[in-house]
Nucleic acid binder design. Structure first.
Length: 229
DNA sequence: GCCCAGGTGGGTA
DNA sequence: TACCCACATGGG
């Protein structure tokens, strides 16, 4: 439901976040393929641990479609151990690379010509890829206009009163895609800013309480409190 | 020692 | 459909 009010709020939160944190320069990776690998490895895991896993893969010469295709799952698991759930994630990497070779000659870039909706459905069919990982791949590896929702997004926007407590992934995705006029660059920056804010404040327990960035939540809440749709 | 981090798949009622 | 659990490291 795109009302003028909701649109203004969603845009205003972006401005507040951008003023606070500045440009985030996402995704931190050298190639589109590396973005995909990072998107899988960062599932329920902090990025610092993912960086170690990616560095290990790189040092072993396995950070490529061919390298991962040739490697045994146990070898991969040992290298990505610093990221969490290394055995399941090793399988996820193999599944993704298998998909890449079956349909796209092992090249992430070859997916770019497929229409967004069709590609999203296709990627969601790959074992180990859920909506957040798929949208991350679409937006950050392929530069397609698909908003990424994560746990921070839900926590922050339900606390701001812009989303229901029990809002699902698609509900939140729609909130942004229906209310943002900007394109891929805006989607890119907005999600990155949400993650940055989520890491620093809006933790599960303290609810922005003792955080030095409380000011941001307060200013956003203040702006949002006066109006209802 | 405890909590939590940029989720997802599978099982059960 | 809606929960619940497994996965299982490392930093604050």
């Amino acid at each position: 439901m795109a009302t003028t009010n909701t649109r203004r709020k969603v845009e205003r939160v972006y401005e507040l976040l951008y003023d606070e944190y500045g440009p985030q320069h996402w995704w931190p990776a050298d190639t589109p393929f590396e973005v995909c690998i990072g998107a899988i490895l960062t599932q329920s895991t902090s990025w610092t641990n993912v960086e170690k896993a990616i560095a290990n893969l790189k040092a072993a010469g396995l950070l490529s479609p061919g390298g991962l295709r040739a490697a045994r799952p146990a070898r991969i698991a040992g290298l990505i151990r610093p990221s969490l759930y290394y055995n399941v994630k090793a399988r996820k990497l193999k599944e993704f690379v298998g998909f890449l070779y079956r349909g796209y000659g092992g090249r992430v870039e070859s997916m770019a010509d497929v229409p967004l909706d069709a590609l999203r459905v296709e990627l969601l069919g790959v074992w180990g890829l859920g909506p957040e990982t798929v949208d991350s791949i679409l937006l950050y590896a392929l530069d397609k206009q698909s908003f990424v929702v994560d746990a921070y997004t839900k926590r922050i926007f339900s606390r701001l009163g812009l989303a229901a407590e029990d809002a699902g992934y698609d509900d939140l995705k729609r909130l942004f895609e229906d209310n943002l006029c900007g394109g891929r660059r805006l989607y890119n920056e907005y999600h990155a800013l949400i993650v940055e804010h989520g890491k620093n404040t809006c933790k599960p327990k303290p609810i922005c309480g003792a955080c030095h960035l409380r000011r941001l939540c307060d200013s956003a809440s203040f702006y949002l409190s006066g109006s209802k749709d």
